[in-house]
Structures are given as C-alpha cells and as structure tokens.
Nucleic acid binder design. Structure first.
Lengths: 117, 117
DNA sequence: CAGTATCCAGCTGGATACTG
DNA sequence: CAGTATCCAGCTGGATACTG
C-alpha cells in the first residue's frame, strides 16, 4: 500500500460537491430527516442528496434510520465511527479559514473566494 | 461567508487527482526538480504535473524556483506558508489509515481499497 | 415523505505532438 | 529540461418526471 493511498482514502469521504455541507449540517444539528436536510441546503436536489448520503452511509460516516410507516420517515445522523472524522475535520476547517484570509491578502478580496459563498 | 466555505477552501487545495502525491513527494524529499517529480510519479504526464503544480503555486503551497540557464532548471518545494498545511494533513493521513482498516473490517480486504494502490 | 429513473451538459484528466 | 497546445473520452452533477 502506497503512502498517498491513506490520503485518498480520507479525501474520498469529503469529495463530492455536497458532502462537506451535509456533514456540517448533521454535525451541528444532530439527527435530521431527509426533508429537513433538503430544506437546509436549498440548492441541492433529491437525487444528489440521496446519492451523497448513500456514499456517506457506505463509508459508515452517516447512520440511516428508516421508520417503517406511512408516510415514510427516514432520519440521518453522524455514526459513532463518523464522530472520529469530525475531530479530524476541525483542524481542516480552521486551516480553511486561515487560507481564505491568506488568499485575500495575496490577491485581494474580490478574486479570493471565487464565488463568495 | 457560509461555514462550509472554509471546508471548500481547504479541500480545494487537496482536490485534483495528483495533488496528494505531489505534496507527499515534496514533503518527504524537500526540493525537487520537475523531472525528478515526474520520475517519482510514473503515471503522471507533463501536462498534468504542470497543471497541478501551478494550482499549488497559485495557492502559495508550493514554491517554484526558476534558474535562468540552458538547459532550464526549475525546482519545486513546499513554501513556508505551505508547511502549515502539512501539519493539518497529518491527522487526515492518520485517519485515512484507520479508515482503510475500518472498511476492510466492514466489507473485506478485496472490496475496500477498490484499486489496491 | 423519501426516494428512483432517464438523459444530458460541462468539467477533469489523459494521449499525443510540438517548442524555447 | 521544462514545459505548451490540441483534441477527445469518461465521469460528475443537475433538470425533470415518475413512484411506493
């Protein structure tokens, strides 16, 4: 196993256009229903939300709880194992803030964020 | 500025098929010439190597030193600022190793790495 | 409510040939 | 040696319509 394989393994969890936002939502709000997640991320559509959640579930980061009732109810939350990832994400998030500032200092406010999210 | 913007900012540095490998090479070997990098990453081609290095340079992670001579000589290294990122990468790398083991435990050795790097 | 199916545009990466 | 230019295949994300 090559060294960078570990990086890839960790990165593969985070890569995907909506995964960071989804993770952030679940980390700060705890358990959320599918529709709550959708409301909290206005620009996402059902297909993408489902897809990204399934990938996070496959990697055991997110837990999916299905209530067998009509109308259906499905709740998502960070799994026990997934909480280990949250800890790793914190320094990354902090560094991200630093980096935005650094880019602003180098290139100016306008060009740094690229899309001003 | 939304919260996940920080994540995106940090992730954008790492995303790109060859960036983790390039970073790892420069971190462990220090200063390297373009051709040395190319030799150390057999499957990469010049276009990709150039492109990824330019992006890392734009983000001030990698320093590019051009020696004005014939034949040309260009050396790459992690910038002072970039060293701050290396520290953040370490926990990510460690977690990556954990995650590979976790996936192996869940799904078995064969399906975990997907391509056995 | 919580999805799935289909189809398509745009971006990313790669093969190949050329250059100061 | 250290690149640039061109062109194209495949993957990722998104719009839209349908469903148990």
């Amino acid at each position: 196993m090559k060294e960078y394989c570990k990086f890839e393994s960790a990165l593969s969890i985070l890569v995907g256009k909506w995964k960071p936002v989804i993770l952030l939502q679940l980390i700060s709000n705890g358990t959320m229903r599918f529709s709550e997640l959708q409301k909290s991320i206005p620009d996402i559509n059902k297909k993408m939300l489902t897809q990204q959640l399934r990938e996070l579930e496959y990697n055991d980061i997110v837990h999916r709880e299905v209530y067998n009732q009509v109308p259906p109810k499905v709740e998502y939350s960070i799994s026990e194992y997934g909480k280990g990832l949250s800890a790793v994400l914190q320094p990354l998030n902090d560094w991200g803030a630093t980096h935005i500032a650094h880019m602003n200092a180098l290139y100016g406010e306008d060009r740094a964020g690229n899309e001003s999210k």
